[in-house]
């Protein structure tokens, strides 16, 4: 077996230099929870491992109206953070429901995104919350919306030499909800997961709605058609003017549209048929909870 090189830089600039030097040969290692099984089973034969756990990218901060989460922040820390719970409830819930304790202490938010599983639990809440990722390389920095970060299963816009530095989540007034259906309660990938964000003017008129579906397409999916039918709708008892009522029927319409935008597959976890059925129910429940509508 060819010798594998290992680097554990302690400065970001040093890491970026290594990534520039080794280019496509470099494999970025953080918590390892997705990467190491592939090494153990010889599916991936890395040439150069660059460990980014010592770069100080483990932080959760509030700055400039945004929640800033370092790429190497473990899922457990996100699940336990009162700040995340308050400012990005769907993300906190997704972190809490992902995997199991010993996976959450190692697995990181950056790794969850970079692994680009269509079922990545943290991707859907970040899309629903309108988050961005900051990508850095020796050449500079760019910011990409999470919904535009994924290209396909295991594929992202990350270029060789590039690294996720942090995730930025805008802090907004509305309410976010995350729901997950797995084969069992813990230690399971999503059969389908849903994250929604709804902002209600005076608690009565929907001024912003975002819907994201996981494990329902080759990438975590934002469902814009579903969002469109919620915009401007008002609660049935509202004194405010609105195009349509935001009621059970409207929410079910949105759920239907979300599923129509998706393209789930049959796999060992569930059939596409089941994913559509269950996904529709989850979208409706999440929207109802976020908008304060009884269904």
């Amino acid at each position: 077996m060819k010798d594998v090189l290992y680097f554990a830089p302690t400065e970001l600039t040093e890491a970026l230099k290594l990534l520039a030097q080794y280019g496509e040969k470099a494999t970025i290692l953080a918590g390892g929870t997705d990467l190491v099984p592939r090494i153990n089973y010889y599916e991936l034969k890395p040439e150069v491992l660059v460990y980014i756990g010592n770069l100080g990218l483990d932080y959760i901060e509030q700055s400039d109206g945004k929640l800033i989460i370092g790429a190497a922040t473990p899922t457990a820390k996100i699940a336990a953070s009162p700040l995340v719970a308050e400012k990005a409830a769907a993300l906190a819930e997704a972190a809490r429901l992902s995997a199991s304790p010993a996976i959450r202490t190692a697995g990181t938010i950056g790794g969850n995104l970079a692994n680009a599983s269509p079922a990545a639990d943290l991707a859907t809440p970040l899309i629903a919350l309108g988050a961005t990722v900051v990508l850095v390389s020796a050449k500079g920095e760019r910011e990409v919306a999470v919904e535009e970060f994924f290209k396909g299963p295991g594929e992202t816009v990350l270029q060789p030499g590039e690294l996720i530095k942090e995730v930025r989540v805008p802090i907004k007034k509305g309410k976010s909800v995350f729901l997950k259906l797995g084969r069992r309660k813990a230690m399971t990938l999503s059969v389908v997961n849903v994250a929604v964000y709804v902002e209600m003017e005076k608690g009565q008129r929907c001024v912003d709605a975002r819907v994201a579906l996981g494990a329902m397409a080759p990438v975590p999916l934002r469902c814009k058609k579903a969002e469109g039918v919620l915009q401007g709708c008002v609660l049935p008892m509202s004194a405010l003017e609105g195009a349509e009522f935001l009621d059970k029927a409207r929410i079910e319409k949105a759920a239907e549209l979300a599923i129509a935008e998706s393209s789930p597959i049959d796999d060992q976890r569930a059939t596409a048929w089941y994913r559509r059925k269950a996904g529709k129910v989850l979208v409706a429940r999440a929207l109802a909870a976020a908008a304060g509508v009884a269904i």
Partner: peptide, 29 residues
């Protein structure tokens, strides 16, 4: 399982539970 599924290799690193099979050895330096 060498896959992070079974939990039989759980150890504490700096007091936190991790899967030894998912942890690259050099990262515990």
């Amino acid at each position: 399982c060498d896959n992070g599924d079974c939990g039989a290799c759980t150890v504490l690193v700096n007091g936190e539970p991790v899967r030894a099979c998912l942890t690259i050895g050099l990262t515990v330096a």
